[in-house]
Amino acid sequence: MQDGYTIMRSAVPAGLITQIADDLDPRYSETPYCKGGFYGARTKRFGRLLIRSPHMTDLVMHPDILALAETALGPWCDRIQLNLTQAIELHPGALAQLPHRDQDMWQGAIGEVEYLLNVMWPLTAFTEANGATVIWPRSHGVEALVEEPAEAPIVAEAEPGDAIIFLGSTLHGAGANRSVGVRRGIIISYCLGWLKPYENQWLAYPPEIAKDFPPELAALAGYAQHRPNLGNFEGQCPSVLFGGYPSEPIAAVDALRPDQDALLADYVAAQRRDDDGVLAA
């Protein structure tokens, strides 16, 4: 994404978005307004969307978007992971959000690594009047080191079924809702597999819930190790918990990258040759 963002028109059928919107509607009604200037005093937010609509899997596992996330983030990790699923509702009178870059939550090196890919899915039409996401084109990557963006922002107007996609290094923020209606949307984001995700996936989807996910979704939600051995449970993939907590001790099992396996094999072989030489002498 040379501009730091793109809008994928008609990424999914509008009917799928309608089903998700209907599933989430009761939770929107029950959720109180946020507290704090960043989240927004006239804004509602809630997460754990994979348990709130059976259709959310279609968005999270969208093959074209996953491929884009792999391309954007793959150079810096062994595997990507789900960072967040969050529903957002801007009410009339909501102020424009502070422009920000989501990568800043990790305080990592700026301009050297891409940490995150965001996907905003409108549940209602996103317009300039109701607070559509504002994005600064080409403010990503090394441009994140520049205090003032070189280009003027654009308003990412979109319809249900469209996907607004932008990097974690891209400057953006919700617009002000100057309309008389609410603006509803879903944010799904993917990050490097070795980072601590924004939403604690193991608490959002504990083993008794995640065991019923498709295997690829469970892995994306944290039930997979990031080689080497990161995110393990007792030295094994955390998906071992889908069968319940082990009643007996279990063996730790290497989970290494191919290059590490090769290096280890050479190292072990060299030691064995040395041992054989000592025994022969």
Rank of each mutant, 00 (worst) to 15 (best):
G4H: 00
A11Q: 03
L16C: 03
I17G: 04
D22C: 03
E30M: 02
K35N: 03
K35M: 13
R42L: 08
R48K: 14
R52D: 05
T57E: 11
H62E: 08
D64A: 09
G74P: 11
G74Y: 10
L82M: 00
T85S: 06
Q86C: 12
A87L: 02
R101Y: 06
Q107G: 15
E114P: 07
E114T: 00
E114D: 01
Y115N: 01
L117K: 06
M120W: 10
P122T: 07
L123C: 05
N130G: 05
V134R: 12
V134W: 07
P137W: 10
S139L: 09
A150Q: 08
E157D: 08
E159A: 07
P160H: 08
P160A: 01
G161H: 13
A163C: 08
I164Y: 07
I164H: 09
F166S: 01
T170Y: 10
G175I: 02
N177W: 03
V182H: 09
I186M: 14
G193Y: 00
P206A: 01
A219C: 05
H226R: 13
F233K: 02
Q236A: 15
P238H: 11
V240Q: 01
Y245G: 11
E248H: 07
L256K: 02
D266Q: 00
A270V: 00
R272E: 13
D274H: 09
